[in-house]
Design a protein around this nucleic acid. Structure first.
Lengths: 206, 206, 206, 206
DNA sequence: GATGAATGAGTGTTCATTCAT
DNA sequence: AATGAATGAACACTCATTCAT
């Protein structure tokens, strides 16, 4: 699917608004106004508001694959690989914050007829990547053998998105009185915390 | 705030629909139809659709406090306390799944003028409870000293809600081909997984 | 028709609101609230909102008769009688401002099924009173013979009500920067102006 | 402000209904039905029902200026000028009957946020025109010096609108058993009556 | 290819009134 | 006699979409 310049602008505006106000809370007129295009353009370009969402999902999912092919062949320890992967994962969620929220709330939970196979495939690929690293670590005797690998991404994604969703609460709790401090906290403390957690889980013998 | 029988029925129907279709995706007529009441009743009882949401939040938050006062005085090890607390926490999220989703997506993220102070207070109380247990464990030399306690609830809540939000994906991935199996998986594997993760984090020396 | 204390309070509140906001612009809930009675009382006491208006009209019309029986027998010149009558008329409109407005706008012009016979009778009686004075003056050679008597009350009522309806405009135009000044202007200048006008009309030979 | 054909039709229908049933007594559906347009068109064209009223007022006020520039320079006596002005004034009110009623009742008296400055300006302009004629007459010694000029338009407008508002009463009183007779009465008797009244007032020495 | 005009369906809310008590 | 609870109907308005141009 190829999108022209205007279509991409519409997608970006829609992404922002869908994330902020929800799909039903966003009117096509609002999108059209901000994107400086005619209302009819949305139906004209995408068919309908719902199909605009579908196009947006498609457009964004392609960029959500972890591009860590290098990681597999790098000559660093699996522990460092885990650290790198988590850092990269959190950055990925961070920079795709809007579409993550849209996907989870507007698509996954509600009953829209949007094909999520590409999204699910991405998640499975990312899971496979993680699995390879863990198996490598287990073979090296660094990681414990009995870990539920499928439940590790939920920790990373879940914790990060939860932190995002409750931004105000955590800004208050952790005294992050500027957006900059908040962003830095994610890049530093939250990332370290999740890295430590996953590594503990992998290494810790119960 | 006291609600009569019909008001509670409206609240329950609204909760279900708001969680499933979103606040903006749910019409008052839909609520009225399912609750077998007149459309005007919603305005009559609650003032407006928005105030209905507010009433729902208020109604539910009171039940979201962790009732684990006993835990503090029980003569079991802090490790067992952590296990119990997590199990209880997950059950709490489980049975309040709808309002959790509503709170996170309809209230926290969007700009509604709903007072979240009670909700935030509950979260802080629950955090305090967790903190006490961890400090107890640290004093006994069971837990490591340098853990970011504030970031532990996000792991529990984030992981659990992420699992819920992606129910279909995980049902497919983990071959949970019935709702029963899915529920059991949460009660067993997911709970164990999160317990193990948190304990690892607390005990693991990096 | 006898009204009890509460009914009269409702009537007074309704009169005030109907004049200020119009019949359709006033809700029975508004009336009930201000009159400190239950909403159902209005239907209970008067039958319906429309019948409340009817009752109000009936209640007020009785007081709108010019009580100037004395005028007929007083031993003053017809010119002085005209002066007295006009002054009295303007005061009458003044103190019945609300119901006058309601009658003209809510009843007379729109198609309500309210019996206006009593109101029309009052107007005819008042016209007769005026006619008698004018005939007396004509017999005394004070007034011209060829005057259209039926069109004299419209001058008095029309001018006065027009002044009331455009209160703000005239307050601005005539620098009547307080309600007191405005009221005084009516009692003094406007009254004198209308008296002079009618007398001129009656005396002036064209 | 330019209005297209359909917009003008809506304005005309609205004018008629607002005058007849009042602003609150007229529903947009009623307007839409009679104007043979979709209900949504009213919001689409004017923004809201209230703004439709505002547009109507704006649309009509421009036509309410007395176009009597010729009068100032015509070589006729001030007395004849007064006659002409009054005749023209009454015709103006006559042909703008609806908007006059709307302005007086729906706009002037109730608390709408409609800008009445243009209307007030028109009234002041018309007053100025009258004033010039009267001063001319006074300079020629035809009119008395001590007349309250600001209170003359109220006589003309008040009397005429009062006559209109009480159409049924006067049709009954004056045996004007057809609309034609009623209209003719205004053009003949009522006009003459008001002309005579104003002239008497101006000429009569008290 | 692109758009202004237009619309039917649906929105949340308010209304006067009714009715069981 | 008096009222709180309840309701169907109507309200103004917004929506995503269509269509002639």
């Amino acid at each position: 699917m190829e999108f022209n310049e205007k279509q991409i602008e519409i997608l970006l505006v829609a992404e922002h608004l869908f994330a902020e106000e929800g799909f039903n809370g966003t009117s096509v007129r609002e999108i059209a106004k901000i994107a400086h295009i005619n209302v009819a353009m949305i139906s004209y370009y995408f068919g309908s508001k719902e199909k605009l969402l579908e196009a947006l999902v498609l457009y964004r999912i392609s960029g959500m694959q972890l591009h860590l092919e290098s990681l597999s062949i790098e000559e660093i320890s699996p522990i460092e690989k885990i650290d790198k992967l988590i850092e990269y994962y959190i950055q990925l969620i961070n920079s795709n914050r809007c579409i993550y929220q849209i996907l989870h709330f507007e698509v996954t939970s509600t009953k829209r007829e949007i094909n999520l196979d590409p999204f699910n495939q991405v998640k499975k690929n990312n899971l496979k990547l993680l699995e390879n690293i863990i198996i490598e670590g287990q073979l090296q005797g660094l990681f414990q053998p009995n870990v539920n690998i499928a439940l590790i991404p939920p920790i990373i994604i879940g914790t990060t998105t939860h932190f995002h969703l409750n931004k105000h609460y955590f800004q208050d709790l952790l005294h992050l009185d500027s957006d900059e401090k908040y962003e830095n906290y994610i890049a530093d403390e939250l990332t370290k915390h999740i890295q430590k957690t996953i590594k503990a889980l992998l290494i810790y013998e119960d």
